[in-house]
Amino acid sequence: MIIIEWLLLIFLIVCAIAVSISKNLLNSVIIFMNYSLVMAVIWVLLRSPDLAITEAAVGAGVTSVLFFLALRKIGQIGHEKENQNKN
């Protein structure tokens, strides 16, 4: 149990750093989505099921959808060339 806890926590930090240094915005958003999902799992471990449900629905669901839509609107999805100067 403790090992899982530590793995999840380290995963969180790795995700956070990866988001900051990733060059591609789409990758950043996907990593952030994973981050939210892991956060939901951690909240189950911390005995807060309310938070876990909300985070899974909002953080991983709605927020990521908003990010994807924003990226689509500015043409970052599907136009790889433009990404280079927008890191």
Binding site: D50, V58, G61
Partner: peptide
């Protein structure tokens, strides 16, 4: 179910509403 059982089980208006919105989306 999540909205209506908000006072009995985990969840509630906010998470249930988010789920409902995904149906609309």
């Amino acid at each position: 179910v999540v909205v209506i059982n908000g006072h009995l089980t985990p969840g509630g208006g906010f998470s249930g509403g988010a789920i409902l919105s995904t149906a609309l989306i």
